[in-house]
């Protein structure tokens, strides 16, 4: 008799849990969205929206600001024929907070190539250089994110959507010159 009562109680509890769980799910979604607010301020990531799925589930979400379908695969495709020993630099505006997420995601996808970061400040200011590649690995490629590349690089550049451009740079100029566009 006692075991039958326990069985019935177990079944009832499971049903209650399922029903309550459905109601709690929306609450959990809201909570997780709140915990991710610091990323949302970066403007590019909304982690609790339904993930698209696939092998590049997370990086596609992080690159959503590129506004193209399958941004991770598109970025990998453009980088495919860049030799692994070539260093690259990701040039962006320091005013664009979301660009840090895009830089790190591009650097994630770009392994084993060293990828540094240059952040352009106000007009006429020299950009801040972060994570600069070693001197023995010369920078041969430049990413431009939400910055227009210099006209002489435009012909050989490759676009990854409307906001990201990869351009070969046979010889580096002063960093400031890349920020003036």
């Amino acid at each position: 008799m006692r075991s039958r009562i326990i069985k019935i109680a177990s079944a009832c509890l499971i049903i209650v849990l399922v029903v309550v769980g459905r109601y709690c799910a929306n609450g959990l979604r809201r909570l997780a969205s709140a915990s991710a607010s610091r990323f949302e301020s970066a403007g590019a990531w909304s982690p609790m929206s339904k993930a698209a799925g696939g092998a590049y589930n997370t990086t596609d979400r992080y690159l959503s600001s590129l506004q193209i379908p399958n941004p991770s695969e598109a970025t990998l495709k453009v980088m495919a024929d860049v030799p692994p020993e070539d260093a690259m630099v990701f040039i962006t505006s320091s005013a664009d907070e979301g660009s840090e997420l895009v830089y790190r995601t591009v650097a994630y996808l770009g392994w084993p190539r060293p990828i540094g970061e240059a952040r352009c400040g106000g007009a006429g200011e020299a950009p801040e250089l972060f994570f600069h590649p070693r001197a023995e690995r010369p920078v041969k490629w430049l990413f431009f994110y939400r910055i227009k590349p210099p006209p002489e690089l435009m012909q050989t550049s490759r676009t990854i959507g409307p906001y990201l451009v990869l351009a070969p740079s046979p010889e580096l100029k002063e960093w400031k010159s890349y920020c003036s566009q």
Binding site: L28, R29, A32, A36, F39, W45, P47, M48, K50, A51, N57, T58, T59, R61, Y62, R104, T105, Y108, W111, P112
Partner: peptide, 22 residues
């Protein structure tokens, strides 16, 4: 369900999973 719903977090990708991929 929550794991399927969410993408990897910042550290989850840039601190841990990146090393797994490499």
């Amino acid at each position: 369900w929550l794991s399927r719903l969410r993408t990897l977090g910042w550290d989850g990708l840039f601190n841990w999973e990146i090393k797994a991929r490499i």
